[in-house]
């Protein structure tokens, strides 16, 4: 590869762009990891689209040199599905927060798994609402105190891994910003996977979540060993119920699910993305004539 080709595939952005994340935030590590995985799969920025909702994690696309659609809080998944289904040649990656995907966008999380578009969903799980300055998120642990939960969280945290497996997501993984090599390996595999890959990545928020720090995540996680078989759904479901310590790795994988783009049928003969197709007036006119 020549130097210029290399530059054309760079996802870096000009230094002049101001990054709004706090020093020490786990998002920096995730940004670095994702760029490395993008290099692994050799995708070009022009063919890659980042989609996000709203939140600190959802600012991710701003700091990557690719196409992006930074939409509404909670609504990244349907936007991404619409993009992928209209042009399957694009690589579509969602980078958003735990509140955005599991809370405000919970219904889309459920039903996008049922559709199974070939996109990668990366949820930055800091167990808190960062952008709105530190309220409980759907993954906050019981007892966490915040300005809005002064007596501590009393609602049961969501288990996104168990949920995704039960709904039949074909690629379900958990990793941690504190283990960059592991995370890079998982994300690269997710990019290469045909179908929806769900990755929950633990991300410390040193400003608003003083409990779930880098150290806490290290102490409360372990990496699954080579012998673990992610293709056994029942076994995977059992694994997903372990919450202390949390297992890291591909928890469940199923290579046999049809993607949404294939299931909808419009690409079975004609592979062209929708924008390249012309209107066929003879079909419309025939349909009209049938009604005379």
């Amino acid at each position: 590869m020549t130097k210029t080709e290399q530059n054309e595939k760079s996802f870096d952005i000009p230094k002049s762009i101001d990054n709004q994340w706090c020093p020490g935030c786990g998002n920096f590590s995730i940004l670095h990891i994702i760029k490395k995985s993008l290099k692994d799969v050799d995708w070009s920025p022009q063919d890659t689209v980042f989609v996000s909702g709203i939140g600190q994690a959802a600012k991710f696309p701003q700091y990557s040199g690719a196409n992006y659609f930074n939409g509404l809080h909670g609504r990244a998944l349907p936007v991404a599905t619409g993009i992928k289904a209209s042009n399957p040649n694009l690589n579509v990656i969602i980078t958003s927060g735990d509140g955005d995907i599991y809370g405000e966008g919970g219904d889309h999380f459920i039903h996008t798994i049922r559709r199974n578009p070939n996109i990668t969903l990366i949820v930055h799980n800091n167990m808190i609402y960062g952008l709105t300055k530190g309220q409980a998120s759907p993954t906050s642990e019981i007892g966490l105190t915040t300005p809005v939960q002064p007596d501590g969280v009393y609602t049961e945290p969501i288990n996104p891994i168990a949920m995704a497996i039960s709904l039949g997501a074909p690629f379900v993984a958990r990793t941690s910003a504190g283990n960059p090599r592991h995370a890079q390996d998982i994300i690269t595999q997710a990019f290469e996977f045909e179908g929806l890959s769900v990755i929950d990545i633990f991300q410390p928020c040193p400003v608003f979540n003083k409990v779930n720090t880098y150290q806490w995540f290290n102490e409360h996680t372990y990496v699954l060993d080579e012998a673990y078989n992610p293709s056994d759904k029942v076994n995977a479901f059992e694994k997903s119920l372990e919450t202390d310590k949390f297992p890291l790795g591909i928890i469940y994988k199923n290579e046999n699910r049809a993607t949404f783009e294939n299931a909808i049928g419009i690409y079975s003969e004609n592979k062209e993305p929708l924008y390249k197709r012309k209107i066929d007036f003879s079909i419309i006119n025939n349909l009209l004539n049938e009604r005379k």
């Binding site: 989609v51 659609f69 509404l72 991404a80 619409g82 993009i83 289904a85 209209s86 993305p273 924008y275």
Partner: peptide, 13 residues
């Protein structure tokens, strides 16, 4: 939202 995504990617939804 998916219709808006589709237009962003060049479809007419």
């Amino acid at each position: 939202n998916s219709t808006i995504g589709a237009w962003y990617a060049g479809a007419r939804g």
